[in-house]
């Protein structure tokens, strides 16, 4: 049981986290832009998250919190 929380306003949609995730479950969502106008990262399948924190380590804006 693990999950990530992406800070909606801090994320700049750079997608570096999406390349780091070994489960390929982090993606940029396409529904809602944040105040700066970015489509932000989300986990598309919490059930598969292993809490490895590789997405968070890759995040240049330190916008991801990981729980396990």
């Amino acid at each position: 049981m693990a999950k990530i929380t992406v800070n909606f306003e801090k994320c700049k949609g750079c997608a570096l986290c999406t390349t780091a995730c070994p489960k390929k479950i982090v993606e940029l969502q396409k529904e809602k832009r944040n105040r700066k106008g970015y489509f932000t990262a989300v986990c598309i399948d919490d059930s598969q998250c292993i809490g490895c924190a590789m997405c968070a380590m890759m995040c240049p804006d330190c916008a991801i919190v990981v729980e396990k």
Binding site: M1, K3, A56, M57, C62, I64, V65, V66, E67, K68
Partner: peptide
């Protein structure tokens, strides 16, 4: 669940 990664 415990936080395993957050902003320092």
């Amino acid at each position: 669940m415990a936080v395993v990664f957050e902003r320092p």
